[in-house]
Design a protein around this nucleic acid. Structure first.
Length: 462
RNA sequence: GGUGGAGUGGCCGAGAGGCGAGGCUCGGGACUGCAAAUCCCGCUACACGGGUUCAAAUCCCGUCUCCACCUCCA
C-alpha cells in the first residue's frame, strides 16, 4: 500500500505524512464563528476535513479531531444588538445551525468541539506565559498585545515581510509598541461581555483562542492544523506567533481548503453572494450536496452553480441506483471494500476527483455485470464503490442518511405497486400493450419510475 | 505596493513533458412491443504570442484577463 502524502502550506510541497506518535493523528481545524447561518463555503471546509479524517481513520490511525467554535467576537456582539437578544443566544442559535448543516451532510462530530468562552482560564495562562517571557505586553488600558518585532520568525506561513504589510486602518495604536502588534486580549467596552484578568476585564482576541484550545486538547505540538485559505493571514500566522513564542512546537503540517466561488468570486457573507446550506438543501439532498462539494480537489476553487449542482446530483443518483440494484441482485447490502487504486489516489494528497473517476469505471463494469446477472462481479464492484463512498461520506446505506419518515408505509406501498406491476405483466403477456402502458403511465404520474430488468420490473420513487 | 492562486471542450472538473482522466449535457447505435434503465460510439479542449524539445496543456520568456489575502472571513 502506498504511503499518504499531503500538501503542506508551510513548505509548499507535497510530502510523506509522518505522525508525531505512531498510529495516532491529532488535528485541529478552525471551525465557525457562530454569527450567521452556514453557507456552502463553510460546509465545504467541514466536508473536506471530514474526508481527511475518514481517510486517516480508514488507514488505521487513531484520530483526535478538534474543531472549535468561536462563540464571542465583534460580529456576534453586533448581531446581538441587531436581533435584540443576548450575545450568548446569538452564538447558540448559530452554533445549532452549523450543527444541523454538518449533520445534514454527514460530517462526523469532532472528537471534542471546544467553545472559546469555555477556555478563558487557558487563555489567561497563555498570556501570563507570554508576558513573563517578554513576548507580550499589557500597556495598562486592558488590552494585551503580542510584540511581533521580538519574534524569531513571523509571517513564514504566508511568506510575507513585516514591512510589506499595509498599515492597519482603524486600529487604535496609542498603546501599541508597533502598529503590527496584534491583540491577544481586548479590554472590555461598556455593555459588552467581559471576563476578569490580571490586566483588567475584557474578552479574548480571536487568534489567542485557537492557540489556547489546541494546546488544551492536543498539547504543545500536534500533527495537522487546518482551515480555510483565508485564515492563513492573519489568523494562522498569529496562532503560530503566540504558540511558538510560548515555546510550543505547534502544528507540524498546515492544510487549507479552497473556497466555493460564484462567478469566480469567493462566496462570503460580506460580498453578499453567499448561499445558505439550508437553502441549497431545498434543491438537493444532503448526500448530493456533499458529493458535489467533494467533486473538486480540496485545494481547487469550486465554482458553484445550481446547474453544476444538479448535474452532479444526477451523476450521484446513477451510482446510488447501481448500488440499490446490486443489493437487490445479491440479496444483501454489498460489503464495503477499499480498492488499492482508490487508496492510491487518496494517498496522493486526497485526490478525490480521481477517486470519482474510479467510481465511474466500477459503476460501468458493475452495470454490465448486473445485466449479465454475474453476482460475483456485481458484489466486487459494488463493494469497491461502497468503500469509496464511505470515505467520501456519501454511502447511501449509511444509517446517517436513512430517513425514518414513511418507513411503515414502504411495505404497504411496495405491495400496492407490486400488485399494479403484476397486472401490467399480465397485460404484456397477452400483448395488450395499451393496457400495460396505461398502468405504467398512471404509476409514473405518481412520481414512480418503472424499469424492466432481466430479473423483472422494478420501481423507485423519483 | 507586498504575497498567493487561476484561465482546459456546451457545463463541471482532473492531469503537470509522450498513447485525449472522469462526470453531466447533446447526437448516433444496441437492447426493448414501446419506454425507462443499461451498455457501445461520437462531440478531439487546454487564455494569447514567442522559445526549448524527437515530443509541450504540462518547461522557459513575454503579454492579457480574472480572483484572493494584507489585521471580519471556511
Amino acid at each position: 500500500m502506498s504511503a499518504l502524502k499531503l500538501y503542506d502550506t508551510a513548505t509548499r510541497d507535497i510530502r510523506d505524512f509522518q505522525p508525531l506518535k505512531k498510529g495516532e493523528v491529532s488535528i485541529y481545524v478552525c471551525g465557525a464563528t457562530v454569527q450567521a447561518a452556514p453557507h456552502v463555503g463553510h460546509i465545504r471546509s467541514g466536508v473536506n476535513f471530514d474526508i481527511l479524517r475518514r481517510w486517516l481513520t480508514a488507514s488505521g490511525y487513531n484520530v483526535t479531531f478538534i474543531r472549535n467554535v468561536t462563540d464571542i467576537d465583534d460580529k456576534i456582539l453586533h448581531k446581538a444588538v441587531h436581533e435584540e437578544i443576548p450575545w450568548w443566544a446569538v452564538a447558540m442559535k448559530y452554533e445549532r445551525a452549523f450543527a444541523l448543516a454538518y449533520e445534514s451532510l454527514n460530517v462526523l462530530p469532532p472528537t471534542y468541539e471546544p467553545r472559546a468562552t469555555g477556555h478563558i482560564t487557558q487563555m489567561i495562562e497563555l498570556m501570563e506565559k507570554l508576558i513573563e517571557n517578554g513576548s507580550a505586553y499589557a500597556p495598562g488600558n486592558g488590552d494585551v498585545y503580542l510584540e511581533v518585532r521580538k519574534l524569531k520568525s513571523y509571517l513564514t506561513l504566508s511568506n510575507q515581510k513585516l514591512d510589506d504589510l499595509l498599515p492597519a486602518g482603524d486600529a487604535d495604536e496609542t498603546y501599541k509598541r508597533d502598529p503590527r502588534d496584534f491583540a491577544l486580549w481586548k479590554a472590555a467596552k461598556p455593555g459588552d461581555p467581559s471576563w476578569p484578568t490580571p490586566w483588567g476585564a475584557g474578552r479574548p482576541g480571536w487568534h489567542l483562542e485557537c492557540s489556547a484550545m489546541s494546546h488544551a486538547y492536543l498539547g504543545a505540538e500536534f500533527d495537522i492544523h487546518g482551515g480555510g485559505l483565508d485564515l492563513i493571514f492573519p489568523h494562522h500566522e498569529n496562532e503560530i506567533a503566540q504558540s511558538q513564542a510560548a515555546g510550543y512546537g505547534f502544528a507540524k503540517l498546515w492544510m487549507h481548503n479552497a473556497w466555493v466561488t460564484t462567478s469566480g468570486e469567493k462566496m462570503s457573507k460580506s460580498l453578499g453572494n453567499s448561499l445558505q446550506v439550508m437553502e441549497v438543501l431545498k434543491r438537493v439532498r444532503g448526500i448530493e450536496l456533499r458529493w458535489y462539494l467533494g467533486s473538486a480537489h480540496y485545494r481547487s476553487m469550486l465554482e458553484f452553480s445550481f446547474e453544476a449542482l444538479e448535474e452532479s446530483a444526477t451523476a450521484f443518483k446513477r451510482v446510488e441506483s447501481f448500488l440499490q440494484r446490486a443489493k437487490e441482485l445479491i440479496g444483501a447490502v454489498p460489503g464495503a471494500v477499499i480498492a488499492d487504486e482508490f487508496a492510491a489516489v487518496m494517498n496522493d494528497d486526497l485526490s478525490v476527483p480521481q477517486g470519482l473517476a474510479l467510481i465511474a469505471e466500477w459503476q460501468r463494469s458493475g452495470n454490465t455485470a448486473l445485466t449479465n446477472g454475474d453476482s460475483a462481479q456485481v458484489s466486487k464492484f459494488a463493494g469497491y464503490i461502497r468503500g469509496a463512498l464511505d470515505i467520501l461520506g456519501c454511502d447511501p446505506f449509511d444509517p446517517a442518511y436513512a430517513s425514518n419518515a414513511g418507513a411503515d408505509l414502504s411495505a404497504a406501498v411496495d405491495g400496492l405497486i407490486a400488485l399494479l406491476l403484476e397486472q401490467r405483466e399480465a397485460a404484456r403477456a397477452r400483448k395488450d400493450f395499451a393496457a400495460a402502458d396505461s398502468i405504467r403511465d398512471r404509476i409514473t404520474a405518481m412520481g414512480i419510475s418503472i424499469e424492466d430488468t432481466p430479473q423483472g420490473p422494478r420501481w423507485s420513487i423519483n
